[in-house]
Nucleic acid binder design. Structure first.
Lengths: 99, 99
DNA sequence: CATACTACCATGCATTGCAAGGTACTATTT
DNA sequence: AAATAGTACCTTGCAATGCATGGTAGTATG
């Protein structure tokens, strides 16, 4: 049911601050959206290739280095489009359901 | 973006009254959800095989006979589940977006 | 030095929606 | 009567997406 919406959620999370994969998974889990690692990593790579995200490496005191993702200006512009699409989808489904 | 949600929309439309493929496409179009024939037919077949829909043939005065789909009791029960899932999804996405 | 943990990533699969094309019956026009 | 257009059914092949699984490598911990 939630296919394709993950993309929107990831950009939303990152629009609120840079994060690495585990951060993102935690934030999603906090909102009760469970996502698998094997889903997230390829998605982040796709969004980076699309120009919506960039990343930098940061050393960690407890474990291997982390890949911090950051939303780009282009990503923010796309997020505005996604806001509109999402609202439209919600309106459409609700209209179809209640009549 | 709307992947997987079509299933919910089709059941919603049919919960409001029996319909054949073109009827359904028109109702979806009326709510600005554009769906292709090649998407709808397999989906109806899947839902019928899942036990959520049944169908009957009806002669038409203007063209070939029509396959009218009807939601089953099992389909209505499943639709209630989908209502909950949908509401949950909307809440989750909105929560992630606005904080 | 071995085990556990963290964080990265890749491969293969199932599902789903779309594009394109095909069949068959009915109605309309020439 | 034949050709064209319209309606309604359906299939096949493709691309995208999410999941399950498993793998690599660096960093602690016992």
């Amino acid at each position: 049911m939630r296919k394709g919406i993950l993309e929107y959620c990831i950009l939303s999370v990152l629009s609120d601050g840079d994060a690495y994969a585990s951060d993102i998974l935690d934030k999603l889990k906090g909102a009760r959206m469970i996502v698998m690692e094997g889903t997230l990593y390829p998605l982040l790579t796709r969004q980076k290739n699309a120009g919506w995200l960039s990343y930098r490496w940061e050393e960690s005191t407890q474990g291997p280095p982390r890949k911090y993702y950051s939303i780009t200006e282009e990503g923010r512009r796309f997020l505005v489009d996604l806001d509109a699409s999402w609202q439209e989808l919600v309106d459409t489904v609700n209209k179809l359901r209640h009549c």
